[in-house]
């Protein structure tokens, strides 16, 4: 399937054969080919939807903070609701010190939320269904949290791997376990979002394929299923953005407060 991918514009013209499988929707197509040295930095459909996501967020904030009235309008209410929601999440999981990282968590939440939601539009591309994107975000959080932890606590940060009050003989079992669960974090974090978005979109596509295959006689059965699953996916889009941001908060809390 990798052959479908087109790295440059020249290849794009030749290899434009369309394949209508459930995985076709995840194909990355370059829109503006950009090659820097040996790196392919093409502006793709993925980049386009990232642009849409941040443009929509920026538009929301522009509309919401234009008037800044005491009694908020619709847009201002929406932005304030999102703000308070993420703020509560940050404060309740990392405490007051965590508010320093609130803009980052807020950005993370909005970026994933808009990516997930926009991806549900017909003909849209879901950049959060790509492991490269989710892994990049997850590893960034992992390294940032580790650096913050060492910066705040120095070598004392290693005490994270041994909960206080543990008997010494237990340390031989517990420390490797804790280290492993710490190192696995970026993988579980990135796979969770990636797998959720991938599975949802494949499911929708397969069910939609059945609608065509069964025709007018029985097509309405999978059509109703698509209808229901779409609502489920809207919920999943929100929940996965929430879970990603929440876990980032929990990891930050470990770095700030150890245990």
């Amino acid at each position: 399937m990798a052959e479908e991918h087109i790295a440059t514009g020249a290849e794009h013209g030749e290899a434009a054969h369309e394949q209508h499988g459930p995985m076709e929707q995840f194909t990355i197509k370059p829109l503006i080919p950009i090659q820097v040295g040996r790196l392919d930095l093409s502006y793709t459909n993925s980049a386009l939807f990232m642009t849409f996501a941040i443009a929509l967020s920026a538009l929301l904030f522009w509309g919401a903070t234009r008037a800044r009235t005491m009694v908020p309008g619709r847009l201002q209410s929406t932005a304030e609701l999102l703000y308070s929601f993420v703020q509560d999440m940050v404060v309740s999981n990392t405490g007051k010190e965590g508010m320093k990282y609130f803009p980052f968590i807020f950005t993370l939440f909005l970026f994933i939320l808009f990516g997930n939601i926009l991806g549900l539009m017909p003909y849209a591309f879901t950049f959060t269904s790509h492991i490269a994107v989710t892994a990049a975000l997850a590893f960034f959080i992992f390294f940032a949290v580790t650096i913050i932890g060492f910066a705040r606590h120095g070598l004392h940060f290693f005490s994270l791997f041994l909960p206080p009050g543990t008997p010494l003989w237990m340390a031989f079992i517990l420390v490797p376990l804790e280290v492993f669960s710490y190192l696995i974090r970026p993988f579980s974090l990135s796979l969770r979002l990636f797998a959720n978005m991938l599975a949802g979109h494949v499911l929708l596509k397969v069910l939609a394929g059945f609608v065509i295959a069964l025709g007018f006689a029985f097509g309405w059965v999978p059509f109703l299923a698509v209808f229901g699953v779409t609502f489920l996916e809207i919920m999943v889009a929100f929940i996965q953005a929430y879970v990603f941001a929440l876990l980032a908060c929990i990891y930050l809390n470990d770095a700030i407060h150890l245990h």
Binding site: H5, I34, D40, L41, T44, A47, A132
Partner: peptide
């Protein structure tokens, strides 16, 4: 398409 490494650089860059 998710496991095509040739797309990683542009995805991560953008």
């Amino acid at each position: 398409p998710q496991f095509d490494p040739s797309t990683f650089s542009s995805q991560i860059f953008w």
